[in-house]
């Protein structure tokens, strides 16, 4: 018994919106039915479900570097995620480490963001001395804080070192330094 070709395929974006509950009720019900009737569109939705699960797993394992926001981090803490966090004042420094029990490792950088339209981060670790640029990082201008979640797996492998992060506002292709942060990392165990 062969699957007949779908005569009205649901687009990938519409399936994402369906999956995330963004569609109005009549459209949701139409896709509900279509998913049962059409193997091809069900397979596409299955791909979205797997991708969603995989992204969630990567983040839960702390296996990714990502910029978060203070309120998203607070939400994670309320959920019981074991977060090790280090606050670093503007142009300040902090001693830090990571342990096997930590589920998330974050640096909270205090920064004045009023008037900033694009923010980049320049990162350099003394253990490899290579500067990485993270362009156009997301931020909430009202928060005056940038929350950086570090890749835990990678951090656990690194020796003790100094990590310097510089935040720059990008204005007409020119960098304006607005804050420098030093993390003195001690390897655990």
């Amino acid at each position: 018994m062969k699957e007949s070709l779908c005569s009205a395929p649901v687009g990938f974006d519409a399936l994402i919106e369906y999956w995330l509950g963004e569609l109005p009720k009549p459209e949701t019900e139409r896709i509900d039915e279509h998913i049962i009737l059409c193997g091809q569109c069900a397979a596409k939705l299955g791909e979205i479900v797997l991708l969603s699960q995989a992204i969630r797993d990567v983040f839960r394992k702390g296996n990714i570097h990502v910029i978060l926001t203070p309120n998203f981090l607070d939400h994670l803490i309320k959920q019981g995620i074991r977060v090790r966090q280090y606050r670093c004042s503007l142009n300040g420094s902090v001693a830090c480490t990571v342990t096997t029990e930590d589920e998330l490792l974050v640096g909270r950088l205090a920064v004045p963001l009023a008037g900033v339209t694009r923010l980049d981060a320049l990162s350099r670790r003394s253990c490899d001395d290579v500067e990485h640029r993270f362009s156009d990082i997301p931020f909430d201008a009202g928060a005056n804080e940038i929350v950086v979640a570090t890749n835990l797996t990678r951090m656990r492998r690194l020796p003790s070192h100094q990590h310097i992060v510089r935040l720059v506002a990008v204005e007409k292709e020119t960098d304006r330094l607005i804050g420098q942060y030093t993390f003195n990392h001690t390897a655990h165990g």
């Binding site: 999956w19 995330l20 992204i55 990567v58 978060l68 998203f72 156009d136 997301p138 890749n151």
Partner: peptide, 26 residues
Amino acid sequence: VARCLEGLPERERAVLIMTFYEERPA
């Protein structure tokens, strides 16, 4: 997946993680 996510621009990575961590609408 982790490798591919880390290769994305910061903004896209943050949006995907905040979206799919708890399957939140836009």
